[in-house]
Design a protein around this nucleic acid. Structure first.
Length: 191
DNA sequence: TGGGCGATTCGCT
DNA sequence: GCGAATCGCCCAC
């Protein structure tokens, strides 16, 4: 059976609130390692919790560029977090990739993460960047070219939504999306 | 130029 | 459940 079609760059050229839930079930590979996206969060430039809310800076410049590119930033001085820029140039909206179900490159991911439990390999934004070896080197790279590979989902999964995690502003906005029943989420969704 | 504060993770209680 | 680790970003001084 043929691989699912690649996600075209135009996929990201729409509202971040449309793109985010549609990423659930898609496959993300970086350098051949990765799996099925099971959890994301949407950040719009009018959203006080978004990095782009306060305007363009050196760090968030990629968010203000065209859609279909990776925005990578350092979190808590320790971890990296991976986002996909959405909408249009200047709209400064992005989807944070929070968790994936490991499928390909398990050995490499385990080596980088230094553990054996598959459920903990990529169940968080910092964890998956470590497993997929995503760093600031990937900031500003196009998502439709290596080392990135994105493939569309083949069936429409059941999506759950809830409040985003770890933020102090706009805490109630239900812009976290997940694959219902997945064992690979960073945290369970409230029922 | 200095200090407070993260879109987090992990280990210990 | 709580707090340390750890450091770049960003704005107030």
């Amino acid at each position: 059976m043929a691989l699912p079609p690649k996600l075209r760059r135009g996929f990201f050229d729409r509202s971040v609130h449309k793109v985010a839930p549609e990423l659930i079930g898609a496959t993300l590979l970086v350098g051949g390692a990765g799996g099925v996206i099971v959890e994301v969060e949407a950040y719009h430039h009018t959203d006080p919790a978004a990095h782009s809310y306060g305007g363009q800076t050196e760090r968030n410049a990629v968010m203000f560029g065209p859609p279909g590119f990776a925005y990578v930033y350092r979190s808590y001085g320790i971890h990296w977090c991976l986002n996909f820029v959405c909408e249009a140039e200047g709209s400064a909206s992005a989807v944070l990739i929070r968790a994936i179900e490991p499928v390909a490159g398990l050995a490499a991911m385990r080596r980088r993460r230094g553990l054996v439990d598959a459920r903990a390999l990529c169940s968080g934004p910092g964890k998956l960047c470590e497993a997929l070896d995503v760093t600031i080197k990937h900031n500003g790279l196009p998502l439709d070219r290596p080392p990135f590979e994105l493939r569309a989902r083949t069936a429409k999964p059941e999506i759950v939504a809830g409040a985003r995690i770890g933020i102090s502003k706009a805490v109630d906005a239900p812009w976290r999306y997940g694959l219902k029943g997945s064992k690979f989420l960073s945290k369970p969704f409230k029922v």
